[in-house]
């Protein structure tokens, strides 16, 4: 099985890189909102998302943008796999504030729903109409070997032809994202392997 990276996006608090090119971001509001506007994305649901889902949405969106990815037809053969360190702790902390004191108790379903880390895989699947498997894994820190093995594991389902695979971490205002679009029998010479993923993460 030869898996290749067709496109990728790297986002940190300081920079956005898509396929080796740094993207200029006009700083006006919050970092994630600024990226959204700078990339000329139009998807109003973005504004309802928590920071983790926004980070994953932007990472996948920017990785797919150069490919003119078809977002309109249902695709049963594309998987969405994500992983991170802090699960949904960013939104968990927001939700906890709404229930901490019974004198000031206002649990909100709109906040609670994002306390599941894999909601980000759901958001990406909805946006791109992908019906292959979706999975979310947690690990102590970014590990290129694990990243590759999670991506490869999605391809063990022989129906799967491509995978939107990302590291998506957002906690304590620290945004750390690497999204890749990986295909089976790739014509691209950027092979999925530990070295490549290590290089892309450290850009």
């Amino acid at each position: 099985m030869k898996l290749g990276i067709e496109s990728y996006c790297r986002i940190t608090n300081e920079k956005v890189i898509v396929n080796d090119k740094t993207i200029a971001i006009t700083c006006e509001q919050s970092w994630l909102t600024d990226i959204y506007h700078s990339a000329k994305i139009s998807y109003p649901k973005f504004f309802k998302m928590d920071n983790l889902a926004k980070s994953g949405f932007l990472g996948s969106e920017l990785a797919l943008q150069p490919l003119e990815f078809d977002k309109n037809t249902i695709k049963e053969d594309i998987a969405v796999v994500c992983c991170n360190r802090s699960s949904s702790l960013d939104d968990d902390t927001s939700y906890q504030k709404t229930i901490q004191n019974n004198d000031d108790y206002y649990p909100s379903p709109a906040v609670f729903v994002y306390t599941l880390a894999n909601i980000v895989t759901g958001e990406i699947s909805i946006r791109n109409k992908t019906m292959g498997e979706s999975a979310f894994y947690v690990m102590e820190q970014f590990n290129p070997q694990k990243f590759c093995s999670f991506a490869e594991s999605a391809f063990l389902d022989s129906n799967i032809q491509a995978c939107i695979c990302g590291w998506v971490e957002y906690y304590n205002e620290n945004c750390d994202v690497l999204f890749t679009y990986i295909t089976r029998n790739s014509k691209n010479n950027k092979e999925l392997n530990i070295d490549t993923i290590h290089t892309l993460y450290n850009l």
Partner: peptide, 11 residues
């Protein structure tokens, strides 16, 4: 075993 996403709604 197999998994699939609805690509429909988050909750």
């Amino acid at each position: 075993g197999a998994m699939a996403n609805d690509a429909n709604h988050i909750s």
